[in-house]
Design a protein around this nucleic acid. Structure first.
Length: 469
DNA sequence: CATGATGACGCT
DNA sequence: AGCGTCAT
């Protein structure tokens, strides 16, 4: 399997926050629910709505009260509040759980950042009057480039032919950690006292999250960025270095920055123009050294490439020294960070559309459209109550283990969702081995040798089989 | 009063 | 470095 023969799966967790809450309170499974932050103002604002509720017309962004009108049985989970501010820790932690599972089972897991996605996709569909991406193949490279620009047009041209060589980077960590809050209407921050308090509140949250991040990821943020929107409707962003993690320093630095925009007398408590939105963000993470031993740097065990960028330097760890790293600009352009990888379940329209186009080419997969509907509930079955595990577990149950119907191996039951997906991935691989008639790249895309090595693996090797003990 | 909190990224 | 855009 080379770069042109690979399986990229995209995982999209539907109404993730709702499922996180339902995992905690399983009695709400199957019922129309949503997650709202705050509640005093019309029942809070919904930031996640499950499908049961969507059937009633409830949507994200709606107020809890309106949701109740549309759907009397609607249940609202409320986001935790700390210091009067919504705190999303619970969902970040749950997300980290997901990535722990993915990282434990796959070598390449990239957090999604889908450019060319969403709006752009719709624009393309509109522009060319197509429903499926494969239908774009009737357009010439020229035509695509004329409409989409040289770069994107070329990318699209190849993409429609099943050619997409962008490397999947192994990256799970946040590039920034930020905390912000709106102060709408009358609640705007119009005094120094209020601002001081909120600088502190936000600084505290940032501090806590940074400390946790430092412990877990052995890195430190080097830059603090304060962002605020004023009643004048202008947005201001100013940065300052982070020398040490400290609530007071974060708070004071933030306050100092904000004071620069106060048009009022410095002796007055009044702050003008008032602040409608205030946020603190920490970024420019640097490794806090010595996390890797020298031996690690020389070890052969790793095939994956980690690139950590900092302000001044770029460090690459890689398996072989091999050729020179050619870091020319052209390549960077080609390395447009696309999608994502990740695997496990494949659900929804995304894959179906792909299947349809694949059938038009001859690389289609014969295996029946097996849509692994692994809801978060089954995904997390290991964490939920026994009752739930039993409900979602196939085949015979022997305390902690169950027997896989396909390979007859004894699998820890909480590993079953992943294990099952492994079989699916394996089937895809077998199908692909059979079909060798693949379109070749007309213009081969130049890429780094090390990345090629990454992609030059079979799907089997792509997947880490968990040691069964 | 009031679609909020947070990310990533592109442009300049 | 700072601002704007887009997405969920």
């Amino acid at each position: 399997m080379n770069a042109d023969h690979r399986v990229i799966a995209l995982i999209d967790m539907d109404c993730f926050y709702v499922q996180v809450e339902q995992r905690l309170q399983p009695e709400f499974l199957g019922k129309p629910c949503g997650v709202a932050q705050y509640y005093t103002w019309k029942g809070g604002g919904l930031i996640a709505v499950n499908y049961e509720a969507r059937n009633f017309g409830v949507k994200r962004g709606m107020r809890g009260e309106q949701a109740k009108e549309l759907c009397p049985d609607f249940h609202v989970f409320h986001v935790q509040e700390v210091n009067g501010k919504a705190n999303l820790t619970r969902y970040r932690d749950a997300s980290a759980d997901v990535f722990r599972v993915l990282n434990a089972n796959f070598k390449l897991v990239e957090k999604a950042s889908i450019d060319e996605g969403g709006k752009a996709g719709e624009r393309v569909m509109e522009l060319f009057q197509v429903e499926y991406i494969g239908q774009l193949r009737k357009y010439s490279l020229d035509a695509l480039q004329t409409s989409m620009g040289e770069k994107d047009g070329y990318w699209l041209f190849n993409l429609t032919r099943g050619i997409e060589t962008t490397a999947v980077n192994s990256r799970n960590l946040y590039k920034t950690i930020s905390a912000s809050k709106n102060f709408p209407g009358k609640t705007c921050l119009d005094t120094i006292d209020k601002i001081r308090i909120w600088c502190h509140n936000l600084a505290e949250e940032i501090f806590n999250r940074l400390e946790k991040d430092r412990a877990e990821n052995k890195r430190r943020a080097k830059l603090l960025t304060v962002t605020c929107t004023l009643t004048t409707n202008e947005t201001i962003a100013r940065s300052c270095p982070i020398n040490e993690y400290s609530i007071d320093r974060f708070a004071n630095d933030t306050l100092k920055i904000l004071k620069q925009y106060n048009k009022n007398s410095s002796t007055s408590n009044i702050y003008t123009p008032a602040i409608i939105n205030l946020g603190i963000s920490a970024g420019k993470f640097l490794d806090s050294v010595n996390t890797k031993s020298i031996a690690d740097l020389f070890s052969k065990q790793t095939t994956k490439v980690e690139t950590i960028r900092s302000t001044e330097n770029t460090i690459n760890w890689q398996e072989e020294d091999g050729e020179e790293e050619d870091n020319n600009i052209e390549e960077k352009v080609l390395e447009k960070p696309i999608t994502t990888i990740t695997t496990l379940s494949i659900q929804g329209d995304f894959f179906r559309k792909f299947k349809k186009t694949d059938e038009q080419i001859n690389t289609q997969l014969k295996s029946e459209n097996k849509t692994t509907t692994s809801s978060i509930t089954s995904f997390f079955s290991r964490y939920t109550t026994n009752e739930n595990v039993l409900n979602s577990s196939p085949n015979k149950i022997d305390d902690q283990y169950i027997t896989c119907s396909k390979c007859h191996k004894s699998i820890l039951m909480w590993n079953m969702p992943e294990h099952d997906d492994f079989h699916y991935a394996h089937e895809l691989q077998m199908e692909e081995n059979k079909t060798n008639s693949i379109i070749k790249t007309s213009k081969p895309i130049k890429r780094k040798t090390n990345k090629q090595k990454i992609n030059n693996q079979t799907l089997d090797s792509f997947i880490n089989k968990k040691p069964k003990n």
